[in-house]
Design a protein around this nucleic acid. Sequence first.
DNA 1: AGAATAGTATACCAATCGGTACACTATCTG
DNA 2: CAGATAGTGTACCGATTGGTATACTATTCT
Lengths: 188, 188
Amino acid sequence: MENRDNLLKCALDLFTLNGYDAVGVQTICDAAGITKPTLYHYFGSKSGLLNTLLAEELNPFLAQLESAANYRHDITDTLYQVAQTYFNFGRQKPHLYRFYLSMWFAPHDSEAFKAMQPFNDRQQSLLENLFAAAALDHGNMQGRQRTYAASFLGMINTYVMLALNGFSELDEDFVRRLLHQFMHGIFS
Amino acid sequence: MENRDNLLKCALDLFTLNGYDAVGVQTICDAAGITKPTLYHYFGSKSGLLNTLLAEELNPFLAQLESAANYRHDITDTLYQVAQTYFNFGRQKPHLYRFYLSMWFAPHDSEAFKAMQPFNDRQQSLLENLFAAAALDHGNMQGRQRTYAASFLGMINTYVMLALNGFSELDEDFVRRLLHQFMHGIFS
DNA sequence: AGAATAGTATACCAATCGGTACACTATCTG
DNA sequence: CAGATAGTGTACCGATTGGTATACTATTCT
Protein backbone atom coordinates (compact mmCIF):
# COMPACT_ATOMS: atom_id res chain seq x y z
CA MET A 1 0.00 0.00 0.00
CA GLU A 2 3.00 2.28 0.14
CA ASN A 3 2.94 2.96 -3.60
CA ARG A 4 -0.80 3.56 -3.48
CA ASP A 5 -0.55 6.23 -0.79
CA ASN A 6 2.42 7.80 -2.49
CA LEU A 7 0.47 7.98 -5.77
CA LEU A 8 -2.43 9.71 -4.05
CA LYS A 9 -0.13 12.22 -2.43
CA CYS A 10 1.73 13.04 -5.65
CA ALA A 11 -1.50 13.24 -7.65
CA LEU A 12 -3.02 15.64 -5.12
CA ASP A 13 -0.04 17.96 -5.30
CA LEU A 14 0.08 17.91 -9.09
CA PHE A 15 -3.68 18.29 -9.56
CA THR A 16 -4.04 21.17 -7.13
CA LEU A 17 -1.06 22.93 -8.67
CA ASN A 18 -1.74 22.38 -12.37
CA GLY A 19 -5.32 21.20 -12.69
CA TYR A 20 -6.68 17.76 -13.52
CA ASP A 21 -6.52 17.95 -17.31
CA ALA A 22 -3.07 19.47 -17.46
CA VAL A 23 -1.46 16.58 -15.57
CA GLY A 24 -0.80 13.40 -17.51
CA VAL A 25 -0.76 9.92 -16.06
CA GLN A 26 2.90 9.58 -16.92
CA THR A 27 3.78 12.71 -14.94
CA ILE A 28 2.06 11.36 -11.85
CA CYS A 29 3.86 8.04 -12.15
CA ASP A 30 7.23 9.76 -12.58
CA ALA A 31 6.60 11.88 -9.49
CA ALA A 32 5.69 8.79 -7.48
CA GLY A 33 8.65 6.85 -8.85
CA ILE A 34 6.57 3.99 -10.26
CA THR A 35 5.20 2.99 -13.66
CA LYS A 36 1.75 3.20 -15.21
CA PRO A 37 0.54 -0.38 -14.72
CA THR A 38 0.92 0.15 -10.98
CA LEU A 39 -1.33 3.18 -11.10
CA TYR A 40 -3.89 1.32 -13.21
CA HIS A 41 -3.70 -1.63 -10.87
CA TYR A 42 -4.85 0.49 -7.93
CA PHE A 43 -7.22 2.95 -9.53
CA GLY A 44 -8.31 1.53 -12.87
CA SER A 45 -8.19 4.86 -14.65
CA LYS A 46 -7.12 8.45 -14.31
CA SER A 47 -10.62 9.48 -13.25
CA GLY A 48 -10.69 6.57 -10.79
CA LEU A 49 -7.61 8.06 -9.19
CA LEU A 50 -9.33 11.44 -8.97
CA ASN A 51 -12.44 9.91 -7.43
CA THR A 52 -10.46 8.05 -4.81
CA LEU A 53 -8.49 11.18 -4.07
CA LEU A 54 -11.58 13.33 -3.60
CA ALA A 55 -13.29 10.72 -1.48
CA GLU A 56 -10.35 10.38 0.91
CA GLU A 57 -9.87 14.13 1.18
CA LEU A 58 -13.47 15.30 1.29
CA ASN A 59 -15.31 12.63 3.26
CA PRO A 60 -13.69 13.68 6.56
CA PHE A 61 -14.65 17.27 5.79
CA LEU A 62 -18.22 16.31 4.96
CA ALA A 63 -18.45 14.41 8.24
CA GLN A 64 -17.40 17.54 10.13
CA LEU A 65 -19.86 19.57 8.10
CA GLU A 66 -22.66 17.17 8.91
CA SER A 67 -22.29 17.64 12.63
CA ALA A 68 -21.81 21.39 12.27
CA ALA A 69 -25.01 21.66 10.20
CA ASN A 70 -27.07 19.89 12.84
CA TYR A 71 -29.81 22.43 13.66
CA ARG A 72 -30.02 23.33 17.33
CA HIS A 73 -32.80 25.96 17.16
CA ASP A 74 -30.33 28.80 16.75
CA ILE A 75 -29.91 29.44 13.04
CA THR A 76 -27.24 32.11 13.43
CA ASP A 77 -25.12 29.94 15.64
CA THR A 78 -25.54 26.89 13.45
CA LEU A 79 -24.59 28.82 10.32
CA TYR A 80 -21.63 30.17 12.23
CA GLN A 81 -20.47 26.63 12.95
CA VAL A 82 -20.94 25.71 9.30
CA ALA A 83 -18.97 28.70 8.07
CA GLN A 84 -16.26 27.93 10.62
CA THR A 85 -15.98 24.41 9.23
CA TYR A 86 -15.45 25.75 5.71
CA PHE A 87 -12.95 28.33 6.87
CA ASN A 88 -10.99 25.71 8.76
CA PHE A 89 -10.87 23.60 5.65
CA GLY A 90 -9.73 26.54 3.55
CA ARG A 91 -7.08 27.37 6.11
CA GLN A 92 -5.75 23.82 6.36
CA LYS A 93 -5.90 22.85 2.68
CA PRO A 94 -5.91 26.03 0.60
CA HIS A 95 -4.67 24.30 -2.56
CA LEU A 96 -7.32 21.62 -2.31
CA TYR A 97 -10.01 24.23 -1.77
CA ARG A 98 -8.93 26.08 -4.90
CA PHE A 99 -8.83 22.84 -6.84
CA TYR A 100 -12.32 21.97 -5.67
CA LEU A 101 -13.71 25.31 -6.78
CA SER A 102 -12.00 25.01 -10.14
CA MET A 103 -13.81 21.72 -10.63
CA TRP A 104 -17.09 23.38 -9.70
CA PHE A 105 -16.58 25.82 -12.55
CA ALA A 106 -15.31 23.21 -14.99
CA PRO A 107 -17.39 22.23 -18.03
CA HIS A 108 -20.31 20.08 -16.98
CA ASP A 109 -19.29 17.11 -19.09
CA SER A 110 -15.68 17.05 -17.94
CA GLU A 111 -14.33 14.28 -15.74
CA ALA A 112 -13.40 16.83 -13.10
CA PHE A 113 -16.92 18.23 -12.80
CA LYS A 114 -18.49 14.79 -12.66
CA ALA A 115 -16.08 13.70 -9.95
CA MET A 116 -16.83 16.72 -7.82
CA GLN A 117 -20.60 16.84 -8.34
CA PRO A 118 -21.68 14.23 -5.74
CA PHE A 119 -19.73 16.04 -3.02
CA ASN A 120 -21.37 19.30 -3.95
CA ASP A 121 -24.80 17.69 -3.93
CA ARG A 122 -24.21 16.40 -0.42
CA GLN A 123 -23.25 19.86 0.79
CA GLN A 124 -26.24 21.40 -0.92
CA SER A 125 -28.72 18.92 0.56
CA LEU A 126 -27.10 19.17 3.99
CA LEU A 127 -27.65 22.91 3.95
CA GLU A 128 -31.12 22.61 2.46
CA ASN A 129 -32.14 20.38 5.32
CA LEU A 130 -30.68 22.85 7.77
CA PHE A 131 -32.66 25.74 6.30
CA ALA A 132 -35.79 23.64 6.07
CA ALA A 133 -35.51 22.80 9.76
CA ALA A 134 -34.89 26.44 10.61
CA ALA A 135 -37.96 27.48 8.64
CA LEU A 136 -40.08 25.65 11.21
CA ASP A 137 -38.93 28.24 13.75
CA HIS A 138 -38.85 31.18 11.32
CA GLY A 139 -41.93 31.27 9.16
CA ASN A 140 -40.60 33.91 6.77
CA MET A 141 -37.87 31.49 5.63
CA GLN A 142 -40.31 28.87 4.46
CA GLY A 143 -39.97 27.39 0.96
CA ARG A 144 -36.64 29.00 0.25
CA GLN A 145 -34.23 26.26 1.37
CA ARG A 146 -32.74 25.70 -2.07
CA THR A 147 -31.91 29.35 -2.68
CA TYR A 148 -30.66 29.90 0.86
CA ALA A 149 -28.40 26.87 0.69
CA ALA A 150 -26.96 27.85 -2.69
CA SER A 151 -26.42 31.48 -1.80
CA PHE A 152 -24.88 30.68 1.58
CA LEU A 153 -22.52 28.26 -0.13
CA GLY A 154 -21.75 30.86 -2.78
CA MET A 155 -21.05 33.51 -0.19
CA ILE A 156 -18.77 31.21 1.78
CA ASN A 157 -16.81 30.36 -1.34
CA THR A 158 -16.53 34.04 -2.22
CA TYR A 159 -15.15 34.86 1.20
CA VAL A 160 -12.73 31.94 1.20
CA MET A 161 -11.47 32.89 -2.25
CA LEU A 162 -11.00 36.48 -1.12
CA ALA A 163 -8.82 35.18 1.67
CA LEU A 164 -6.94 32.73 -0.54
CA ASN A 165 -6.17 35.61 -2.90
CA GLY A 166 -4.71 37.64 -0.08
CA PHE A 167 -7.48 40.18 0.44
CA SER A 168 -8.18 39.14 4.00
CA GLU A 169 -7.44 36.65 6.73
CA LEU A 170 -9.62 33.62 7.36
CA ASP A 171 -10.09 34.64 10.99
CA GLU A 172 -12.98 34.81 13.45
CA ASP A 173 -13.81 38.35 12.51
CA PHE A 174 -14.16 37.40 8.86
CA VAL A 175 -16.61 34.62 9.74
CA ARG A 176 -18.67 37.07 11.78
CA ARG A 177 -18.81 39.55 8.91
CA LEU A 178 -19.93 36.80 6.55
CA LEU A 179 -22.67 35.74 8.96
CA HIS A 180 -23.76 39.29 9.60
CA GLN A 181 -24.05 40.02 5.91
CA PHE A 182 -25.86 36.80 5.07
CA MET A 183 -28.37 37.06 7.90
CA HIS A 184 -29.13 40.62 6.93
CA GLY A 185 -29.85 39.41 3.40
CA ILE A 186 -32.43 37.01 4.79
CA PHE A 187 -34.18 39.05 7.45
CA SER A 188 -34.78 42.32 5.62
CA MET B 1 -12.65 37.56 -43.41
CA GLU B 2 -15.58 35.20 -43.57
CA ASN B 3 -13.53 32.22 -42.42
CA ARG B 4 -11.99 34.26 -39.64
CA ASP B 5 -15.33 35.29 -38.20
CA ASN B 6 -16.67 31.81 -38.59
CA LEU B 7 -13.66 30.42 -36.72
CA LEU B 8 -14.22 32.84 -33.85
CA LYS B 9 -17.88 31.93 -33.62
CA CYS B 10 -17.25 28.17 -33.66
CA ALA B 11 -14.40 28.47 -31.17
CA LEU B 12 -16.57 30.49 -28.81
CA ASP B 13 -19.32 27.88 -28.88
CA LEU B 14 -16.92 24.99 -28.37
CA PHE B 15 -14.87 26.69 -25.66
CA THR B 16 -17.88 27.80 -23.63
CA LEU B 17 -19.43 24.37 -23.91
CA ASN B 18 -16.41 22.15 -23.31
CA GLY B 19 -13.66 24.36 -21.90
CA TYR B 20 -10.49 25.59 -23.54
CA ASP B 21 -8.26 22.61 -22.88
CA ALA B 22 -10.83 20.02 -23.87
CA VAL B 23 -11.25 21.43 -27.37
CA GLY B 24 -8.55 20.58 -29.91
CA VAL B 25 -7.53 22.78 -32.82
CA GLN B 26 -8.73 20.12 -35.25
CA THR B 27 -12.20 20.11 -33.71
CA ILE B 28 -12.51 23.86 -34.16
CA CYS B 29 -11.41 23.64 -37.77
CA ASP B 30 -13.87 20.84 -38.50
CA ALA B 31 -16.70 22.85 -36.98
CA ALA B 32 -15.77 25.87 -39.08
CA GLY B 33 -15.36 23.75 -42.20
CA ILE B 34 -11.76 24.79 -42.85
CA THR B 35 -8.29 23.34 -42.19
CA LYS B 36 -5.62 24.10 -39.66
CA PRO B 37 -3.29 26.33 -41.70
CA THR B 38 -6.18 28.74 -42.13
CA LEU B 39 -6.61 28.98 -38.38
CA TYR B 40 -2.90 29.47 -37.87
CA HIS B 41 -2.84 32.06 -40.62
CA TYR B 42 -5.31 34.26 -38.74
CA PHE B 43 -4.43 33.63 -35.13
CA GLY B 44 -0.91 32.21 -35.02
CA SER B 45 -1.69 29.74 -32.26
CA LYS B 46 -4.50 28.23 -30.24
CA SER B 47 -3.93 30.70 -27.43
CA GLY B 48 -3.83 33.53 -29.98
CA LEU B 49 -7.30 32.48 -31.03
CA LEU B 50 -8.45 32.55 -27.41
CA ASN B 51 -6.94 35.99 -26.86
CA THR B 52 -8.59 37.43 -29.96
CA LEU B 53 -11.86 35.85 -28.92
CA LEU B 54 -11.77 37.30 -25.42
CA ALA B 55 -10.76 40.72 -26.67
CA GLU B 56 -13.60 40.92 -29.17
CA GLU B 57 -16.17 39.67 -26.67
CA LEU B 58 -15.02 41.44 -23.52
CA ASN B 59 -13.81 44.83 -24.70
CA PRO B 60 -17.34 46.05 -25.47
CA PHE B 61 -18.40 44.86 -22.03
CA LEU B 62 -15.48 46.60 -20.35
CA ALA B 63 -16.36 49.80 -22.18
CA GLN B 64 -19.89 49.61 -20.79
CA LEU B 65 -18.50 48.86 -17.36
CA GLU B 66 -16.20 51.84 -17.53
CA SER B 67 -19.03 54.28 -18.04
CA ALA B 68 -21.20 52.53 -15.45
CA ALA B 69 -18.40 52.73 -12.87
CA ASN B 70 -17.98 56.47 -13.33
CA TYR B 71 -18.57 57.85 -9.81
CA ARG B 72 -21.32 60.45 -9.62
CA HIS B 73 -21.26 61.08 -5.84
CA ASP B 74 -23.92 58.45 -5.17
CA ILE B 75 -22.12 55.21 -4.34
CA THR B 76 -25.28 53.12 -4.08
CA ASP B 77 -26.54 54.25 -7.46
CA THR B 78 -23.16 53.80 -9.14
CA LEU B 79 -22.78 50.30 -7.75
CA TYR B 80 -26.30 49.61 -8.91
CA GLN B 81 -25.33 50.60 -12.45
CA VAL B 82 -22.22 48.42 -12.24
CA ALA B 83 -24.17 45.41 -11.02
CA GLN B 84 -26.74 46.00 -13.75
CA THR B 85 -23.99 45.93 -16.36
CA TYR B 86 -22.79 42.57 -15.10
CA PHE B 87 -26.29 41.18 -14.92
CA ASN B 88 -27.00 42.29 -18.46
CA PHE B 89 -23.88 40.56 -19.62
CA GLY B 90 -24.80 37.39 -17.77
CA ARG B 91 -28.29 37.51 -19.25
CA GLN B 92 -27.10 38.07 -22.81
CA LYS B 93 -24.12 35.70 -22.84
CA PRO B 94 -24.60 33.15 -20.07
CA HIS B 95 -22.25 30.61 -21.65
CA LEU B 96 -19.51 33.17 -22.04
CA TYR B 97 -19.95 34.30 -18.44
CA ARG B 98 -19.56 30.74 -17.23
CA PHE B 99 -16.53 30.26 -19.42
CA TYR B 100 -14.98 33.43 -18.06
CA LEU B 101 -15.45 32.30 -14.48
CA SER B 102 -14.01 28.89 -15.25
CA MET B 103 -10.89 30.62 -16.51
CA TRP B 104 -10.73 32.66 -13.33
CA PHE B 105 -10.57 29.43 -11.35
CA ALA B 106 -8.18 27.71 -13.75
CA PRO B 107 -4.61 26.93 -12.67
CA HIS B 108 -2.53 30.09 -12.62
CA ASP B 109 -0.03 28.84 -15.18
CA SER B 110 -2.60 27.67 -17.70
CA GLU B 111 -3.14 29.46 -21.01
CA ALA B 112 -6.74 30.10 -20.08
CA PHE B 113 -5.91 31.89 -16.84
CA LYS B 114 -3.23 34.01 -18.48
CA ALA B 115 -5.57 35.01 -21.27
CA MET B 116 -8.28 36.09 -18.84
CA GLN B 117 -6.06 37.82 -16.28
CA PRO B 118 -5.66 41.24 -17.98
CA PHE B 119 -9.44 41.57 -18.29
CA ASN B 120 -9.86 40.76 -14.63
CA ASP B 121 -7.19 43.26 -13.69
CA ARG B 122 -9.00 45.99 -15.59
CA GLN B 123 -12.24 45.23 -13.78
CA GLN B 124 -10.50 45.17 -10.44
CA SER B 125 -8.74 48.52 -10.99
CA LEU B 126 -11.92 50.06 -12.40
CA LEU B 127 -13.74 49.15 -9.21
CA GLU B 128 -10.83 50.12 -6.99
CA ASN B 129 -10.85 53.59 -8.50
CA LEU B 130 -14.58 53.80 -7.96
CA PHE B 131 -14.29 52.90 -4.29
CA ALA B 132 -11.33 55.20 -3.85
CA ALA B 133 -13.36 58.08 -5.27
CA ALA B 134 -16.30 57.21 -3.06
CA ALA B 135 -14.05 57.16 0.00
CA LEU B 136 -13.54 60.90 -0.46
CA ASP B 137 -17.25 61.29 0.34
CA HIS B 138 -17.41 58.50 2.93
CA GLY B 139 -14.47 58.63 5.30
CA ASN B 140 -15.17 55.22 6.84
CA MET B 141 -14.47 53.57 3.47
CA GLN B 142 -10.95 54.92 3.23
CA GLY B 143 -8.07 52.58 2.46
CA ARG B 144 -10.27 49.60 1.69
CA GLN B 145 -10.62 49.93 -2.09
CA ARG B 146 -8.90 46.67 -2.86
CA THR B 147 -11.00 44.57 -0.54
CA TYR B 148 -14.22 46.33 -1.50
CA ALA B 149 -13.55 45.86 -5.20
CA ALA B 150 -12.70 42.19 -4.80
CA SER B 151 -15.63 41.39 -2.56
CA PHE B 152 -18.11 43.30 -4.69
CA LEU B 153 -16.85 41.42 -7.76
CA GLY B 154 -17.06 38.17 -5.84
CA MET B 155 -20.59 38.87 -4.71
CA ILE B 156 -21.70 39.77 -8.22
CA ASN B 157 -20.23 36.55 -9.58
CA THR B 158 -21.93 34.56 -6.84
CA TYR B 159 -25.29 36.09 -7.67
CA VAL B 160 -24.87 35.63 -11.41
CA MET B 161 -23.86 32.00 -10.92
CA LEU B 162 -26.88 31.45 -8.69
CA ALA B 163 -29.05 32.69 -11.53
CA LEU B 164 -27.18 30.73 -14.20
CA ASN B 165 -27.73 27.60 -12.13
CA GLY B 166 -31.45 28.23 -12.00
CA PHE B 167 -31.81 29.40 -8.40
CA SER B 168 -33.12 32.81 -9.33
CA GLU B 169 -33.82 35.25 -12.14
CA LEU B 170 -31.35 37.95 -13.11
CA ASP B 171 -34.00 40.62 -12.66
CA GLU B 172 -34.18 44.09 -11.10
CA ASP B 173 -35.19 42.72 -7.76
CA PHE B 174 -32.14 40.48 -7.64
CA VAL B 175 -29.83 43.44 -8.32
CA ARG B 176 -31.49 45.36 -5.51
CA ARG B 177 -31.01 42.49 -3.06
CA LEU B 178 -27.36 42.25 -4.04
CA LEU B 179 -26.86 45.97 -3.50
CA HIS B 180 -28.75 45.96 -0.25
CA GLN B 181 -26.68 43.11 1.10
CA PHE B 182 -23.35 44.55 -0.04
CA MET B 183 -24.02 48.06 1.27
CA HIS B 184 -25.05 46.63 4.61
CA GLY B 185 -21.75 44.75 4.75
CA ILE B 186 -19.92 48.06 4.32
CA PHE B 187 -21.86 50.41 6.55
CA SER B 188 -22.28 48.35 9.69
C1' DA C 1 6.17 -27.78 -1.23
C1' DG C 2 2.85 -25.94 -4.38
C1' DA C 3 -0.68 -22.96 -5.85
C1' DA C 4 -2.87 -18.76 -5.95
C1' DT C 5 -2.84 -13.82 -5.55
C1' DA C 6 -1.15 -9.07 -5.53
C1' DG C 7 2.06 -5.96 -7.25
C1' DT C 8 5.26 -4.26 -10.63
C1' DA C 9 8.08 -3.40 -14.99
C1' DT C 10 9.07 -3.65 -20.12
C1' DA C 11 7.33 -2.49 -24.10
C1' DC C 12 3.86 -1.42 -26.71
C1' DC C 13 -0.87 0.50 -28.76
C1' DA C 14 -3.96 3.76 -31.51
C1' DA C 15 -5.38 8.32 -31.14
C1' DT C 16 -4.74 12.91 -30.49
C1' DC C 17 -2.15 16.98 -29.37
C1' DG C 18 -0.40 21.72 -31.25
C1' DG C 19 2.01 23.14 -35.08
C1' DT C 20 4.26 23.45 -39.95
C1' DA C 21 6.52 22.88 -44.85
C1' DC C 22 5.00 23.51 -49.16
C1' DA C 23 2.34 24.09 -53.04
C1' DC C 24 -1.54 25.99 -54.87
C1' DT C 25 -5.19 29.62 -56.05
C1' DA C 26 -7.64 33.91 -55.85
C1' DT C 27 -7.43 38.63 -55.78
C1' DC C 28 -5.61 42.91 -55.97
C1' DT C 29 -2.02 46.30 -57.76
C1' DG C 30 1.30 48.33 -60.92
C1' DC D 1 -0.35 41.39 -68.54
C1' DA D 2 3.07 40.67 -64.51
C1' DG D 3 3.96 40.37 -59.95
C1' DA D 4 3.01 40.56 -55.28
C1' DT D 5 0.14 39.25 -51.43
C1' DA D 6 -3.42 36.92 -48.75
C1' DG D 7 -5.78 32.80 -48.06
C1' DT D 8 -6.25 27.86 -48.20
C1' DG D 9 -5.60 22.65 -48.71
C1' DT D 10 -2.57 18.27 -48.63
C1' DA D 11 0.26 15.95 -46.08
C1' DC D 12 3.10 15.66 -42.64
C1' DC D 13 5.98 16.38 -37.92
C1' DG D 14 7.49 14.88 -33.11
C1' DA D 15 5.56 14.62 -28.71
C1' DT D 16 2.15 13.17 -25.64
C1' DT D 17 -2.28 11.34 -24.44
C1' DG D 18 -4.85 7.48 -21.69
C1' DG D 19 -4.56 2.73 -21.58
C1' DT D 20 -2.89 -2.37 -22.01
C1' DA D 21 -0.85 -7.30 -23.14
C1' DT D 22 2.36 -9.99 -21.07
C1' DA D 23 5.58 -11.71 -18.18
C1' DC D 24 8.00 -11.49 -14.04
C1' DT D 25 8.46 -11.43 -8.73
C1' DA D 26 7.15 -11.36 -3.95
C1' DT D 27 4.03 -12.77 -0.64
C1' DT D 28 0.48 -15.47 1.38
C1' DC D 29 -2.49 -19.39 1.95
C1' DT D 30 -3.36 -24.47 1.76
